[in-house]
Design a protein around this nucleic acid. Structure first.
Lengths: 340, 340
DNA sequence: CACTGTCGTCGAACCGGTTCGATTCGAACC
DNA sequence: GGTTCGAATCGAACCGGTTCGACGACAGTG
């Protein structure tokens, strides 16, 4: 392979001069710089990443810890992965993808071996055991997903409290007075998906404040169970005119459920979901929904992480950046039908 | 950070002895080995990856080049990514995920900087411009997806020719004499997805050999267009009793199409798809289908690549490993209905 | 003209590992 | 008892970069 020594020899200068000519960290005469650059071009020189890492203590690689949970909608994760990877590349970083079952071990191993300059943790749980390791790691990290105790770490997530309120308020303003909220299964909660609680509690509280009904249900995450549950919910609460879905499987099942009952949205019932844009496209779901903003969260997490690595960011203060929810209007909400 | 020098000092030996004690490449007295191991434990020593890479010319990282095409079902890609990443980890390798638009540039950059020991290329096209770079790269590579000219490189893919034949034969044996095959859109072909052709041609040829009808159609890849096309196809070919789907969007749309016509599979029509197991689960699709075997292909590609890196594999011969298709029976095929 | 400062370059050291002789020592062999 | 051999260890060199300190040349200053 071609080393900086080869470049130096061809350009007729010392290795250090070649290095300075390329980095620009000391002044170099125009002639020498040109000779070095020409040698680089002719030889096709690319610095050896390992050597560079050893010398500079910077690898220009970020560690991306994905956490795949059984029976979660995996494709959603892909959006986060792509968002992070693409933004990282723009900032000059490559991405080491870690999907190890044991996230703690992976984090420790990669951190100790100095393979990366920083970490992005996806799908962070309420009580995530990776956080302690991250806090004591030599590299900084950004979280995507709000844990119970985010102290000392930068966090990026959708504002699920605001999301719960927004869903309720939107339908309340249209005149709805009885709503059904379908959340993800309780076992998602047990695994630490506290965002389900945050949204549900906020929705319930807001409904109470506004003096309207909200029936909350933890739905299944698989077909056809969730479809059957939806049928039952609609039977049990015939007066409900609005349906809030914080459950991807429920959203996917709803078209058939409505169709079989001869109902349509928004004429008979208004629907607001909470799932990614991409999910909606894949399933061609016609319901207005609060986007998960995976791409945007990934971007923000990376940008913050990079500024921390560069030392640009104030090392003392940490941010908890909760993205304001926004409803992608697909026309599935309207004033409730007038009862005969 | 704690270096091997620290370990050596604490154990009271030289750096080289500490290194040999840990690698086992020279004989070391039991007492010294124990002292070194104890020092490692107490200090929490982990070798510096950059230094190791520099010294050994091995990074223990594989480059994974994903190629995302617009309007392709992205989640399918996730299965490949996970298959590769998990298998790589089992073999002691981490994975650098490269999603750059410009795959050629990414490949060149990573290869030249010696960041990885080998490459896995996903979604390889018929005439893939990354292959030339890969052939001249210092590191070996494995392809997932069969290009037109695979010479000199190991390839892993589903056997789409066999898949086309299998679909036709399966329904022929049940007594079907008129089939419809829905492929992916033609522009997938233009981008190099020749597997669509391979399957369709094989199916058509096999149908001709068996003397039965096969109506071939390039379907859209988006809703609701594909649903409308399916309706039209069923109208145009009322005698068809079998439906072969090499088009994910078509498979997703089919339940509603059949439902609206009052048809059900397999009583009225037999259906065989060609999509991943995971896709079927996500959409709760009730059709028998040939699995994409993303996980298995990823595993094989990694195993071969690792043996090539290790020098275990015969460097001269390259393999083209086409996985035999298998139908996951979900009960959507039966003898055709008897005409009244 | 001597002094100071800046520019441009070089050699050497360093980052943290691995690996190649060389050396010492004790046991085995003739 | 001298030779040979293998085991165990050490020091030094090397991998390919970066960076520090030194130094010569040259311009500006008093």
């Amino acid at each position: 392979m071609v080393t900086i020594g080869d470049v130096a020899r061809v350009a007729g200068v010392s290795r250090s001069t070649a290095s300075y000519a390329l980095s620009g960290k000391r002044s170099i005469s125009p002639e020498v710089r040109e000779k070095v650059e020409e040698a680089v071009r002719n030889l096709g020189y690319t610095p050896n990443a390992g050597a560079k890492a050893l010398a500079t203590s910077q690898t220009k690689v970020l560690g991306l810890l994905a956490r795949f949970l059984e029976d979660e909608f995996a494709p959603a994760m892909l959006q986060y992965i792509l968002g992070v990877t693409n933004r990282a590349r723009e900032a000059g970083y490559d991405t080491l993808l870690l999907t190890d079952e044991d996230g703690v071990a992976a984090l420790k191993r990669i951190s100790d071996s100095r393979m990366v300059d920083g970490f992005i943790l996806l799908n962070v749980a309420e009580n995530d055991d990776r956080l302690d390791i991250l806090r004591s790691a030599a590299q900084p990290g950004s979280l995507v997903g709000l844990p119970g105790d985010p102290s000392g770490i930068d966090v990026f997530d959708l504002d699920f409290v605001a999301a719960g309120r927004l869903m309720v308020e939107t339908l309340h303003e249209l005149g709805h007075r009885s709503l059904i909220l379908v959340s993800q299964p309780e076992h998602v909660l047990e695994r630490g998906g506290a965002y389900v609680w945050r949204l549900a509690n906020a929705a319930q509280q807001r409904a109470a404040e506004l003096g309207i009904e909200l029936h909350h249900h933890f739905g299944s995450s698989s077909q056809p169970e969730i479809g059957i549950e939806l049928e039952r919910l609609l039977d049990e609460h015939p007066s409900a005119t609005g349906l809030l879905l914080n459950n991807e499987a429920a959203a996917a099942a709803l078209p058939n459920v409505l169709h079989s009952r001869g109902l349509s949205a928004p004429a008979d019932i208004s629907v607001i979901g909470r799932y990614s844009d991409d999910f909606a496209r894949t399933f061609s779901l016609p319901y207005s929904a609060i986007d998960s903003a995976a791409d945007e969260l990934g971007r923000r997490a990376v940008e913050r992480l990079v500024s921390r690595i560069d030392g640009t960011a104030d090392a003392e203060t940490t941010v908890v950046d909760l993205l304001a929810p926004r409803i992608d209007d697909r026309g599935s909400t309207a004033v409730p039908p007038t009862r005969h």
